[in-house]
């Protein structure tokens, strides 16, 4: 029965699931911060800042995430940048950083769309009250994008959970790598991968349902 093997190797399956959850949460938090910052660059009144934001988005969206992970894992230490002196900690942080950087580009585009969707009259009203550009962003424009960006950010979160599996390629023992290790020890591929599949579905299906629900509610509200 698939799933039973999980209790034979709880460290690799449940421990792996926990690592997957941790990387997802850290990566998403980072992606939200990076994405919002890059979106603000993208709509900045200063052209060079806009170009910088566009370059970020295009670079990270048009190159594979694995390449970015390899770069963080192998490249940075060579120029003296280490995430941690501990190797395991170091690859874990490299993975979370990679998730944040890559998905930050997607978040940026979503947030930018939300910001541009705010009625121009809102910005004029805020400015004519004497709010500075930064205050206008903080109190008027950004809060109004929140509703519109929740469902798309939910979709990015689902992609992110799935993409944490790529951390296995740099040696992070998350869920997929856990299953691979079990397979290599037991040669029970079906059971190992079916169990990993179930555990992934446990994360992504509820997330997907929540996003669909929010999407539908927002579509009706419009």
């Amino acid at each position: 029965m698939p799933g039973a093997i999980a209790f034979q190797f709880p460290d690799l399956f449940f421990g792996g699931l926990w690592v997957t959850i941790q990387i997802s949460a850290l990566g998403l938090a980072g992606a939200l911060v990076i994405g919002t910052a890059v979106a603000l660059l993208r709509i900045s009144p200063a052209a060079p800042l806009r170009w910088l934001g566009a370059a970020y988005v295009e670079f990270f969206r048009n190159t594979p995430l694995v390449v970015q992970l390899f770069f963080l894992f192998l490249g940075l230490p060579l120029v003296g940048l280490r995430f941690s002196s501990d190797t395991f900690e170091s690859i874990f942080r490299a993975a979370a950083t990679g998730m944040a950087l890559y998905h930050g580009a997607y978040v940026a585009e979503v947030v930018r769309g939300g910001l541009l969707g705010v009625d121009k009259g809102q910005i004029e009203a805020a400015r004519s009250l004497g709010l500075s550009y930064a205050q206008m962003l903080r109190y008027v424009q950004l809060p109004q994008t929140f509703r519109a960006v929740v469902p798309p950010v939910g979709n990015i979160a689902i992609a992110l959970v799935k993409n944490t599996s790529l951390a296995s390629t740099i040696g992070v023992t998350e869920l997929l790598f856990g299953a691979e290790i079990v397979e290599s020890r037991t040669f029970r591929a079906e059971e190992s991968f079916a169990t990993a599949t179930l555990l992934y579905l446990l994360l992504t299906i509820p997330l997907g349902l929540a996003v669909n629900y929010l999407e539908r509610r927002l579509l009706v509200a419009r």
Binding site: I158, K162, N163, T164, S165, L166, S168, T169, L176, A179, E180, E183, A189, E190, F193, A196, T197, Y200, L201, T204, I205, G208
Partner: peptide, 19 residues
């Protein structure tokens, strides 16, 4: 459609690579 979309593509690739 929904089950496959809920899975990491790498999991599918590794599975077929092994089995």
């Amino acid at each position: 459609i929904e089950a496959i979309r809920a899975l990491p593509v790498l999991l599918l690739i590794v599975y077929f690579g092994i089995k």
